[in-house]
Amino acid sequence: MDIDKDEAKRIAELARLGLDDDDAKRLAEEMAAILECFRALREADVEGVLPWIAPVAGSAPERPDIVEKSRAGKNALDGAPDRAGRHFRVPRVIG
């Protein structure tokens, strides 16, 4: 499987990971080796086979739509790295 440094950087960008050149080079090599080993998947005969869904967990259960007291306002902000009143504060998005 061909994964070069630039491809690793492109994938990292999708994953919101910032890689420097050294990391990208190393991770590209590691990913290439792992994916090469996983190529065995290609040998499986999956003609006509449906992708797996969890049949053992029961069919999607429903529950009554009842309004419950939410804890969101109370302590969802407790772990925030930065906050302003009842809001999470992040770097400015619009200049």
């Binding site: 690793a8 990292a12 990913m31 994916l35 998947l41 290609r42 499986a44 992708p51 797996w52």
Partner: peptide, 25 residues
């Protein structure tokens, strides 16, 4: 990175979807 790759455009069918079919096998 492996997971993002397997779900990314152009690779999803060959990797993620195939893996889920093998799961059925």
């Amino acid at each position: 990175l492996i997971g993002t790759f397997a779900l990314s455009s152009g690779y999803r069918e060959a990797w993620y979807e195939r893996a889920m079919k093998v799961r059925s096998l």
